[in-house]
Design a binder for these strands. Structure first.
Lengths: 221, 221
DNA sequence: TAAAATTTTTAGATTTATCTAAATTTATAA
DNA sequence: TTATAAATTTAGATAAATCTAAAAATTTTA
């Protein structure tokens, strides 16, 4: 088995290699792990010895198949626990990350399968991110701004790119909060405002607002 | 916060000091922790520094109030997670211990309270052991043989003191398996056989059988 | 393309929890 | 009550994950 620390390194490397297609740099990992570059180098040697990453000095790393499978298992657990915390224990979307960071390291394959079953085999976590199945397969997720969303597609609000109070208060009034599922029904040519459906409610938001709402695009599952 | 290891030491010390009223010996802890006496001594110094135990060289240890409260919190989490695994995820009674050993170290007070609520504030875990409430209070549990049970009291079968196949097969046939709740309704003077109620079913078991069934006596809660 | 800046690695320590082997203390028993 | 046995502690090492400071490699830029 792998230590919590090793699992966290693999997870960070996995996420970084998704963002950026090439190899992952030492400093990027140090940043993600809240540690120093020297510590990362030490750990990279260890992960390479265990054949979890391919590592060439000074050139950055990539995950091996084994390393990738391990990272995806941890991500699967993290996202399933988030669903549990939100759906069953009534936590808010924004409260669950740190707890799931601990729960994701519980080592019991059967527990993961039972939990998945108990939750009804969810395909997405509360942020709209895809949950890998037991074989590690999942639909990729795409995060874009609301005004870039194609019509007809649904998405989940995952954040904002303007953190000013007036903007946040405006969103609160409209009900456009994190975790809400929306569908674009049209774009007004005249002013670029966006028509959308939230639950069953029709809304119109200005182009300026749409440009500052981050959405996780739901692929057809 | 305390490390997993520190929490495990406190838990073992707590359990050992329940069994045996005096101070807890180094070797007993080493045995419980599957480690060596020298390692225990090192850890005892550390726990004493943190004022979690009172430790006198060569004389054994007792938990301080702080240490006891910490141990009880870990035990509360362990038992709540066991209820979750059995009631919600459909694990069997005998499968949950190792998983709960990991889950008990998840550090989130709010998670524990939400879980307790979700489970309906259970008073006993699947073995019949009491679950401390958020303040650490609980009814003590008493483990005795079936033939020593007072009439009218209920208990949960927690094990057997005869592991022979014929005996276990006999119990299986009667439905007297681990986790089953029973109530003594009478004792036959003539042969010492025990009349009991299992769910709503009336049963009679011989004195010999009753002497080999271990029961956790349920206090009036 | 050579100097400067940045990134990465090495060297040598530190902390936590563990170990073995030896020394010390306490308990037991002749 | 002293010798022997058992339990416990100390001393000195080891492995995991981290650190700082210095050295080496790579990238940028003038």
């Amino acid at each position: 088995m792998h230590s919590f620390t090793e699992e966290n390194y693999l997870k960070i490397i996995y996420h970084l290699s998704q963002a950026d297609t090439g190899t992952v740099q030492t400093n990027a990992i140090a940043n993600g792990m809240n540690t120093k570059a020297a510590s990362v180098t030490d750990m990279l040697k260890k992960l390479a010895d265990k054949q979890l990453i391919d590592y060439i000095k000074y050139q950055g790393v990539t995950l091996t198949e084994k390393g990738k499978a391990t990272a995806i298992k941890v991500i699967r657990k993290h996202r399933l626990w988030e669903v549990f915390l939100v759906d069953k224990l009534k936590f808010r979307w924004d409260e669950v990350h740190d707890i799931a960071e601990e729960l994701e390291h519980i080592n019991s394959p059967i527990l993961v399968e039972r939990l998945d079953d108990f939750l009804g085999f969810p395909k997405r976590d509360p942020h709209g991110d895809p949950i890998p199945d037991r074989d590690g397969n999942f639909e990729p997720s795409v995060n874009i701004h609301l005004h870039e969303m194609p019509q007809g597609k649904t998405g989940i609000i995952i954040g904002v790119s303007d953190h000013s109070s007036p903007f946040l208060i405006h969103l609160q009034k409209l009900g456009l909060t994190i975790g809400v599922e929306i569908e674009i029904t049209g774009i007004t040519d005249y002013d670029g405002s966006v028509e959308l459906l939230m639950n069953t409610k029709q809304l119109n938001v200005s182009k300026k607002v749409a440009q500052h709402i981050l959405v996780n695009l739901q692929e057809t599952i």
